[in-house]
């Protein structure tokens, strides 16, 4: 048989284009498609309008993206476990309606303690969302209902209750301070909603990267059976993921309610799709097990930025839907490539 001597040729220094290509590849593998989308849209929109990159516009985008960022963080948790949550919009609507009704009902009873009223109202809103999260978690973790059916069903139930409670009419007459502070207030020059979102981002980052629960969420999404064999309480982890998701959505719901200064049952209509899109564009794998907080935040920011840019470029809202949907599918296709490159031979 033929015998070969060793020859190594693979030590040539890579040249310019090769380096660039390698860099693109490694960014793609590490972060996903987002950096590319972001760069392209920044270039395109700043060419279309010179307002786009102004500090004022960007601050505006930051403020608008708060709600989607919060919901996307929750969505990320459940996506990483390998599921998803279609009922985040309902969690927002329920929070809005219940907290508004509670505040309106309590305000006349204790007119001197308006902050207590706000606190109790917010608590009621969070409680309603907690119920939604527990329902989802129970069905999915305990009874093995598929996340699709469970959250779709809960979405319908919650939306129905919210409409029933209000008859579809916005609940007006919230305490002035509520909207003034949580909707429009500033602390140290930073808008309150932005402040709250930043705190939430830090908290979720810590949970995912520095706590047991975080590692276990990744583990359950990576392979449930294996996680179980490793002694992870998989049901508890799944349950908590859905509860946390609902609570984060609820937080967004409170801030939105403060912003619009009324309790509305139609808040959060498109947020399920948008939050899933933000996660996927931010590199969360739909197969579970992969995803990073900072990229999801950027993903949500990107979607709001895109909408903002399209508004400035005067693209109609119908066309915006088309673009957003296509982008989501494109992101998923690219995610498949990435997964194969990551998990396949390296």
């Amino acid at each position: 048989m033929t015998i070969q001597s060793s020859q190594t040729r693979d030590t040539e220094a890579p040249r310019g284009p090769a380096i660039l290509l390698a860099a693109i590849r490694s960014v793609f593998l590490r972060v996903g498609v987002l950096p590319f989308f972001l760069v392209v849209s920044l270039i395109v929109f700043s060419l279309i309008s010179n307002q786009f990159l102004s500090i004022q516009n960007l601050t505006n985008v930051a403020r608008q993206s708060v709600y989607l960022v919060l919901v996307s963080l929750g969505q990320m948790l459940v996506l990483i476990t390998g599921g998803f949550d279609l009922s985040v919009g309902t969690a927002i609507a329920m929070t809005s309606v219940v907290s508004a009704l509670a505040m309106v009902a309590l305000a006349p009873l204790m007119p001197d303690m308006i902050w207590l009223v706000i606190l109790l109202g917010a608590g009621a809103g969070l409680g309603a969302a907690l119920l939604i999260g527990c329902l989802n978690g129970l069905g999915i973790a305990q009874f093995d209902v598929s996340p699709f059916i469970m959250t779709l069903g809960v979405q319908s139930v919650g939306a129905g209750i919210a409409l029933f409670l209000t008859g579809g009419v916005p609940v007006a007459g919230l305490p002035y301070d509520f909207g003034n502070f949580f909707g429009f207030g500033r602390v140290l020059g930073v808008p309150v909603p932005v402040m709250i979102a930043l705190l939430a981002i830090v908290a979720i980052w810590l949970v995912m990267n520095r706590t047991k629960l975080g590692s276990h969420i990744y583990a359950v999404g990576g392979n449930v059976r294996a996680a179980n064999l490793s002694g992870v309480n998989t049901k508890r982890v799944l349950f908590l993921a859905y509860v946390l998701c609902a609570l984060l959505a609820s937080l967004a719901g409170l801030l939105l309610t403060a912003r619009v200064e009324s309790g509305e049952s139609n808040l959060g209509g498109t947020i399920a799709l948008e939050s899933i899109a933000a996660c996927v564009i931010g590199g969360v794998s739909l197969r579970g097990g992969l995803g990073r907080v900072e990229n999801v935040v950027l993903g949500a920011f990107f979607i709001v930025l895109l909408k903002n840019g399209m508004n400035i470029a005067q693209i109609g809202s119908y066309m915006q839907m088309v673009l957003l949907g296509s982008l989501l599918v494109l992101a998923v296709i690219l995610d498949q490539f990435r997964y194969r490159m990551l998990v396949g031979e390296s």
């Binding site: 590692s215 990744y218 392979n223 996680a227 064999l229 490793s230 794998s285 097990g289 998990v343």
Partner: peptide, 23 residues
Amino acid sequence: TVFQEFSLIPTLRVFENVYLGRE
């Protein structure tokens, strides 16, 4: 126990797997 059917999480790193369940 080292199970016949593996109990590793493919998406996690080696050291994360080793400490899974007893971080």
